[in-house]
Amino acid sequence: MQESRAVHRSQTTGSAKLPGHFYLISLVALLAAVLTWFIWSAPVRPRTVWLGGGWVFGVAFYFGALRYPDLYWRTLERWYHELGSPRYFYRFSGLWLPWLVGIAVVLCLTGLIWGLAFAPPHHEQGNSYRIIYLHVPASSAALMGYMAMGVAGLVALVWRLKMAEIMIKAIAPFGAVMAAISLISGAIWGRPTWGTYWIWDARLTSMLILLFLYLGVIALQNAIRDPRQAGRAASLLSVVGVINVVIVRYSVDWWQSLHQGSSMSMFGTAGSAIHPSMLAPLLLSMFGIYFLYAVTVLIRARTEILWRERKSNWVREEVS
């Protein structure tokens, strides 16, 4: 009886299991479809470069995975397990932190000083446009931060990974500050250009909701005593809130808005409506803010890891 059950089980699992490369090719095809859709609006030449490069990379990855499946899967598995382990993450982030701090400081200072003092003024807005060097990096960091929190939330909900819950806790505070900065700098910029500090406009309102979502995630984590339960609640809010990121991004296209549409593009100067002399410092300060974000996330994650793992031996050795 037992034997037949074992046979039966092996048969069912055997028939239900698809070859590994089926999942891989599905994933790659899905990514390719999403990217193609995303890139389609770009001018022809960068589109060709991105799509061609993307397909070459995708096909190479696919055949590589077929040829050396062990190497590919083992590497992915190792990353997953190592980055999912608080101890490894603590060690790894300690090595990276000084470099990230250096890069963030250099990029932020160069970008902001260049934008404030060296970039030419706008032909209609004069010098008030210089707020862009703070407003755009902060807004995009707030959106990116929430996307990252959504991904971490999904991982936390599906695989119950402790590290993912810690990451949500580490990402939220700086994201809230970024959303606040976006709103404050936007309001101050709005006064000379639009004639008002605030208007209940789709872009502005959805950005305010983003700030409240960040504050909600922080509040949830502080309101629930058990860290695992708090982590689950916060992950759920992170995942659900991602819909608002999409709304913020496309609000200027979907509704009549006082806010201008996006004038930057991922495809370099060809797709951007900004002159290179103004775009260069903007990109520098954007990357500077991203690196600064990474620095604060690592610092907060390390603190949280130490506190949660305080009973383990490695923390004892690390601290004393």
Binding site: G126, S128, L134, F174
Partner: peptide, 21 residues
């Protein structure tokens, strides 16, 4: 004429960032 706007925005926001870090 835009000094007060630009510098107040930068002042408040850089202070917020530094405070957070």
């Amino acid at each position: 004429v835009h000094g007060p706007f630009v510098w107040s925005a930068f002042g408040i926001c850089v202070a917020l960032i530094l405070l957070n870090v």
